[in-house]
């Protein structure tokens, strides 16, 4: 690139950046003094609404990316192992060197069993489940995200299943992976996802009599009064003025 071209490009840069910025679906919630619940950082934040890659096409293995080396094999083996239940996998997502299977929730338990028991797959280790709340994703607001690790094949996959806020039920896989016991209790505690078939789905982190599920997006960050023996101390954001 000659110096002249570089200069031209540099001259266009602010305009180009401005165009890009206007084109991005940015949601700004104000600069200082953001009004989102309980936020005391003073800055309202910035969200760019963009959709993640929905459905990756085959082949999943990218010859230039060693991280994806066994993705096609895993997908084939899973398809073969599921047999006629292969429709359980709604879509497959390959992004950032990670393989994600989006699964219908009805089929989750069977899928977990196949993942653990099928000799070609052998995902011995489940590293737990966590919830993610997407209030804008109507009909699939709550996601349960599982990560599985195969020590035999040195492979790692993610399984995602969704459920709506109105019917927050997902089958429990504790019967297959006992390690998920506490992880599912935590996801229930924080997000209100009901894991059907869990042996004792009770709160784990919050006190037993807590109201609400605090890590959902519609739950404020702060502003919970302290209660002790009937006496109440008002929540921090109502105690004194910051202005």
């Amino acid at each position: 690139m000659s110096e002249k071209e570089r200069n031209e490009e540099a001259a266009e840069l602010p305009e180009k950046q401005g165009r890009e910025r206007l084109a991005a679906p940015v949601k700004r919630t104000g600069m200082f003094g953001g009004s989102t619940g309980g936020d005391t950082s003073g800055f309202g934040g910035l969200q760019v609404r963009g959709s993640a890659p929905a459905n990756s096409p085959r082949p999943y293995t990218d010859p230039d990316d060693p991280r994806t080396a066994d993705f096609d094999r895993v997908a084939d083996d899973l398809e073969a192992a599921l047999g006629e239940d292969a429709g359980a996998v709604e879509r497959v997502e390959v992004a950032l060197g990670e393989l994600t299977f989006h699964v219908r929730r009805e089929a989750l338990l069977e899928l977990a069993r196949v993942l653990r028991d099928d000799p070609a797959l052998r995902y011995e280790l489940c590293t737990g489940v966590t919830g993610v709340h997407f209030p804008d994703d109507t009909g699939r607001e709550l996601r349960a995200v599982y990560h599985f690790r195969s020590i035999s094949h040195n492979s790692e996959i993610r399984v995602v299943t969704t459920c709506p806020d109105a019917d927050p039920h997902v089958p429990s896989i504790v019967s297959v992976y006992p390690t998920n016991d506490w992880h599912e209790r935590e996801a229930w505690d924080f997000f209100g996802i009901v894991f059907d078939g869990h042996p004792a789905l009770t709160r784990i982190q919050m006190p037993d009599d807590w109201r609400g599920h605090p890590q959902r997006k519609d739950y404020p960050l702060g502003g919970i009064p302290v209660e002790y023996r009937g006496a109440t101390v008002p929540p921090p954001d109502e105690r004194r003025s910051y202005t």
Binding site: G45, L46, Q47, V48, T130
Partner: peptide, 16 residues
């Protein structure tokens, strides 16, 4: 496990 919505803050971060 980190989830981003494209913004300047995490949408969700979970530690196993």
């Amino acid at each position: 496990y980190a989830v981003s919505d494209g913004g300047t803050r995490p949408h969700r971060v979970h530690f196993r």
